[in-house]
């Protein structure tokens, strides 16, 4: 271990134009950033996903009254930049004394929670539209089969239509997950130390832009590699029936 560190130090000072030894010395900063980025990504995907499923069903089945509300929500979220939404939640709400005096302030005063809320709402809207499309694309034969088998609508959705739709939505959803990973860097604009925030802090400390930002880029590439592998595996398992022999 010692000799590995030493060889990195020698490589950084003598061969490489970039000082990666300094990055290693600040590993705890980037580790903290990685934790925040991953936590924000995973938790917002869970919260957003839980919100997206009912929204997608409401939209696909055109539930009266709820459908226009769901559509309005999705339209609003997709119609405004995430940065603006985060600023409204973070700086906008804190302007009101009623908000600052309310119980919600315990959560809203924390930049980390504001970022999580904004990301969850954002990914919920986009994911809902992906799921809606997949539900509407259910082959007629599958729907007719549920009717022929005498399933109730709820049972048909639970057993046939939703699982089939989720499988079809998988490639598009994988894209949304990667997209969501990259949008988490917006958290650094409200003082959260995510991977980009760590790189910025590093840059402010040593005035070494390349070292910090290249490290951040490598971290993102590594995360995306894992995400694409996971989705590839899932697609191979769940979409086996669609693979051409």
């Amino acid at each position: 271990m010692e000799s590995l560190l030493e060889s990195i130090r020698v490589f950084s000072s003598e061969t490489s134009p970039l000082d990666f030894y300094l990055v290693l010395q600040n590993w705890s900063l980037f580790w903290k950033g990685l934790q925040n980025t991953l936590l924000l990504l995973v938790l917002s995907l869970i919260a957003g996903g839980l919100l997206a499923v009912p929204l997608a069903i409401i939209r696909a089945t055109r539930v009266p009254i709820l459908n226009p509300i769901a559509y309005g929500f999705i339209y609003f979220v997709r119609g405004t930049p995430l940065l603006v939404q985060l600023y409204v939640i973070y700086y906008g709400l804190s302007q009101f004394e009623a908000v600052r005096d309310s119980a919600a302030w315990v959560i809203l005063r924390e930049p980390w929670w504001c970022a999580l809320i904004a990301f969850s709402i954002g990914t919920a809207a986009y994911t809902a539209e992906i799921f809606r499309g997949a539900i509407e694309d259910t082959p007629r034969g599958e729907v007719e089969a549920t009717i022929a088998a005498g399933m109730s609508r709820v049972l048909a959705y639970r057993r046939i239509i939703l699982p089939s739709a989720f499988r079809r939505a998988l490639p598009a959803y994988g894209n949304e997950v990667i997209f969501n990973l990259h949008t988490t860097v917006i958290a650094s604009t409200v003082t959260v130390i995510d991977v980009l925030g760590a790189a910025r802090t590093f840059n402010n400390k040593y005035y070494l832009a390349y070292e910090g930002f290249i490290t951040a880029a490598l971290i993102f590439i590594a995360i995306v590699f894992v995400i694409t592998r996971v989705f590839n595996l899932m697609e191979r398992r769940m979409l086996r029936h669609l693979v051409r022999a």
């Binding site: 700086y91 804190s94 302007q95 930049p111 604009t189 003082t191 925030g197 910025r200 802090t201 402010n204």
Partner: peptide, 13 residues
């Protein structure tokens, strides 16, 4: 510490 890019944002917080 919390780090800001603009003074205005820091004043708001």
């Amino acid at each position: 510490i919390a780090i800001y890019r603009s003074s205005e944002d820091m004043f708001l917080d």
